[in-house]
Design a binder for these strands. Structure first.
Length: 282
DNA sequence: GTCCAGGAAAAAC
DNA sequence: GTTTTTCATGGA
């Protein structure tokens, strides 16, 4: 039998987090229910206000999903850091009240944000899913929390290993809609596979923000913005402040005299997520 | 047809 | 060293 775990959580919206451009493997199943895929993990969550039902049971919630959704962090405290005179940020926080910065897998974020460059969210989502479907492992999702309408025949695909992607080579990545980015993924998969690759990923995960950025910037296809996204979403360096085309426009229009980074030392990345979400959906 | 999308590498100045 | 062009691709 399925064991369902219910819990009350403040400052959290699955929907807002799913549409905040940091994760491309959450699917809306309707009726407030979401399917979430992370690495090899899968769960369905039903949200009604501040009450949540997780399909995974309490052990998996405490062992994995609680940390994944960053539920141990007090986002009320972060919202309270907003400058009272910064109307734009205050509106952004009010609008995206339930956005959280996920603690996702580094390797998964490296691949995902290599795909993201000069790309749009729909195409990124399609490419990530195609990558998983082609190279990931096929698994049975869940025994009927709700009908798995978005998941073909009740199955899902895990995010593929570096070895699986590396083995395909750049030729094997041609039919995923990656465009010119295929060569970046092929090179990075090669970099991360085998014993040496695992060590590199482990070093990356142990590094502080500056060091991690330096390691990432040495790799083919990784520039400052992608490195910052990997740091923020894959390594939980919430001081990282990725500046993409949307954030650049916000800074130009609403912060012409410069963004007050010094007011948000150590949490600028979370502030950035509120701004990004508001720009996209507000 | 042109412009844009969670940009970065390569070429040109 | 800094600025400009190129790189696929699908949708508006």
């Amino acid at each position: 039998m399925r064991e369902e775990f219910e819990i009350q959580i403040k400052d959290f919206s699955v929907e807002q987090t799913a549409y905040s451009g940091q994760c491309f493997r959450m699917r809306n199943l309707g009726d407030g229910v979401w399917a979430i895929l992370a690495g090899g993990h899968y769960v369905q969550v039903k949200q009604q206000g501040d009450r949540f039902a997780f399909s995974c049971g309490e052990d998996a919630f405490r062992g994995f999903w609680r940390e994944y959704f960053d539920l141990g962090t007090d986002y009320g405290r972060i919202k309270a850091m907003a400058d009272p005179e910064d109307d734009y940020l205050r509106k952004a926080m009010e609008f995206g009240w339930g956005v959280r910065v996920l603690r996702q897998n580094p390797w998964e974020m490296i691949m995902t944000f290599l795909i993201s460059q000069n790309n749009n969210i729909t195409r990124i989502t399609n490419s990530v899913e195609a990558l998983c479907k082609k190279f990931g492992e096929r698994r049975i999702a869940c025994d009927g929390f709700v009908p798995d309408c978005m998941l073909e025949d009740g199955c899902y695909y895990t995010f593929p290993s570096p070895e699986a992607v590396a083995a395909a080579g750049v030729e094997g990545l041609k039919d995923l809609g990656l465009g010119y980015r295929d060569k970046y993924l092929a090179a990075m998969a090669k970099r991360c596979c085998g014993e040496e690759g695992r060590e590199w990923l482990e070093d990356l995960a142990q590094s502080d923000y500056e060091t991690a950025c330096g390691l990432l910037l040495k790799e083919f296809g990784v520039g400052k913005k992608v490195a910052d996204c990997i740091c923020l979403f894959g390594l939980y360096h919430v001081e990282a402040f990725p500046i993409d085309t949307h954030i650049r426009q916000i800074l130009e229009v609403h912060y012409p005299k410069g963004f007050p980074y010094e007011s948000y030392t150590g949490v600028a990345g979370i502030i950035q997520q509120y701004l990004f979400y508001y720009k996209l959906h507000g």
